[in-house]
Simulated scan of single mutants.
Amino acid sequence: MSSAERTRETRERILVAACEVIAEVGFEKIRMRMVAEHAGVSTALLHYHFENRERLFAEAMTHSFAHTGTELERDADSVPAAVILARILHSLLPTDPELRQDWRLWQELWVRALRDDAARTLAVDLYDQLHAWVSQALTRGIDAGEFADCDVHATSTTLLSLCDGFGIRLMLGDPRVTVDSALAVIWGTAARALGIPPEFPAL
């Protein structure tokens, strides 16, 4: 393994560890030593790659986000646009342990964004990327004739807002909301706007 490959592997291991630790204990309680121990590296090596907690947090959020984006691109050229859209909407809810961890990271980011300009800028930038994912899926379906024409920007914003609202209630364990009931409402909203069947597609 080359030096560059070792460096990438070390950074990856640190970022995965940071996501796990931040999700478990919260940003305010996290210490660099905790992440170093979880990643199996020295504190000095951790500081070599990430100068402080704020930088580590920002890159951990971006890493988590990029990983989700990579998964969403799987087979993107060989499946219907409705399936791509369904994958995106499914990934925007805490539907499995990994996505629940992502949601805990988002919640930490929201809290920090209320008090910190850098965190607020990061949150807005990540939301812009989420909006782009949804918008691209809608545009693809419209261009392919799978979806009826619609206001792509407004529809994307509505779907993201529904995912946020239901996601919060799912994270809180609201007994009146399940993943299936949330997806039914979200997909029903998409179906009405796009002229597609109301049944959530198989992923």
Rank of each mutant, 00 (worst) to 15 (best):
A118W: 06
W106I: 00
R115I: 12
D143R: 07
T121P: 02
A123L: 15
L126A: 01
I142D: 03
F147R: 03
R112T: 04
Y127W: 14
Q136Y: 00
L122F: 11
P97V: 13
D143M: 01
D149N: 10
Q107K: 03
L122Y: 06
W106A: 04
F147A: 13
H153E: 15
L130G: 08
G145C: 05
L130Y: 13
H131C: 05
V124S: 05
A118H: 10
H153K: 15
E98S: 15
E98Y: 09
L105R: 09
C150L: 07
A144L: 06
V134D: 00
D149L: 08
L130M: 10
R104C: 12
E98T: 11
T95H: 06
H153L: 14
D117K: 10
Q136N: 07
G141T: 09
F147Q: 02
V124H: 09
D149F: 02
R112A: 04
T139V: 01
E146P: 07
W110E: 10
G141P: 04
D96N: 15
A148P: 01
L109Y: 11
D96F: 05
Q107R: 08
D151A: 08
D149A: 14
S91F: 11
D151K: 10
L92A: 09
A148K: 08
A137T: 02
D149S: 11
L130T: 06
Q136K: 04
W106C: 01
Q129R: 15
H131V: 03
D151S: 13
C150T: 15
P97H: 12
D96W: 01
A132W: 03
L92Y: 15
A118I: 04
R104H: 14
T121S: 14
A144N: 05
G141M: 10
L105W: 07
T95D: 05
C150V: 11
V134W: 00
D96I: 03
L130W: 13
R100I: 05
S135R: 09
I142T: 03
D128I: 00
W110R: 05
T95G: 08
L122T: 08
G145P: 01
L126V: 04
L130A: 08
D116G: 00
W110D: 04
L126N: 01
R100S: 08
A144D: 10
Q136L: 09
W110H: 02
D117Q: 13
V134T: 05
A123F: 07
A137D: 02
C150Q: 03
G145D: 02
L105I: 08
L114E: 12
P97T: 12
L93E: 04
R140S: 00
A148V: 01
W133C: 02
V152P: 07
A137R: 00
P97Q: 12
H131M: 07
L99G: 06
W133R: 08
D117A: 15
L138S: 04
D143V: 03
G141I: 13
Q101C: 10
A137M: 06
L122V: 06
L93I: 07
L130R: 15
R115A: 14
V111R: 14
L93Q: 08
P97R: 12
L138A: 01
L130S: 07
